[in-house]
Design a protein around this nucleic acid. Sequence first.
DNA 1: TCTATATTTCCAGATTACGTGAATTATAGA
DNA 2: TCTATAATTCACGTAATCTGGAAATATAGA
Lengths: 117, 117
Amino acid sequence: MELKNAAAALSALGHTGRLSIFRLLVQAGREGVAAGEIARRLDVPPNTLSSNLNILTNVGLIDSRREGRSIIYTARYENMTALLEYLMEDCCNGAPEICAPLADVALRSRCGEEGRA
Amino acid sequence: MELKNAAAALSALGHTGRLSIFRLLVQAGREGVAAGEIARRLDVPPNTLSSNLNILTNVGLIDSRREGRSIIYTARYENMTALLEYLMEDCCNGAPEICAPLADVALRSRCGEEGRA
DNA sequence: TCTATATTTCCAGATTACGTGAATTATAGA
DNA sequence: TCTATAATTCACGTAATCTGGAAATATAGA
């Protein structure tokens, strides 16, 4: 991942509306959620939602497919992973005790294995 | 972590200049780096740097201490961890194979244990 | 105290982002 | 084809952000 792409993705997430959308999709898994359903759950007007979905799509954080009249959005986990990797790259100058908690967070996120902290 | 705080932190990172600063500090470890040294390494004017350091400080991503004439900046790893945790929270609806790569990234970041991917 | 160094604060013009009303496109079903 | 539903695109006023010059503050050393 390059600086510009990472910054663009982070900037897209740096907005309460878009962050809510993204987390919703991250939690939804591969199935995804239809635009209308997102609008209903988050209570946002459809045009505002659409513009934010577009921004998240452009930076590669989400994807979409049409199903009948609905458009289903999904998180792009690979790109999310690349982004987090970029943030942690060469972390903490050789002091493992600093990064260990980061690793623990990720391990705990292995879904369904135990409650979160 | 709450939505607003997370969005503020991500927004602060969604800027190539600030993202570069933050990564520099993440990689520097607990020692930190003086403002002037950051300015030199990233080639940015001191007032612009100062304003961006201030923004990163306000969202809790970095910290500073004075040492003589210099002000030393450091990454706040605990808050970085909390931010990543927020992004991964309840990830992927019970499909561990989706989140596993995220965990791997974090494990690989255990500094100095092996090369990064 | 005087000077040099390190960094921050103040300020203003330029740019970019935000949200939304209105119009538009796409699909499904009668 | 006509109507209803689902979602997007366009246009635009408002608000926030970005950048860097100039001035101010803090510290160290002579």
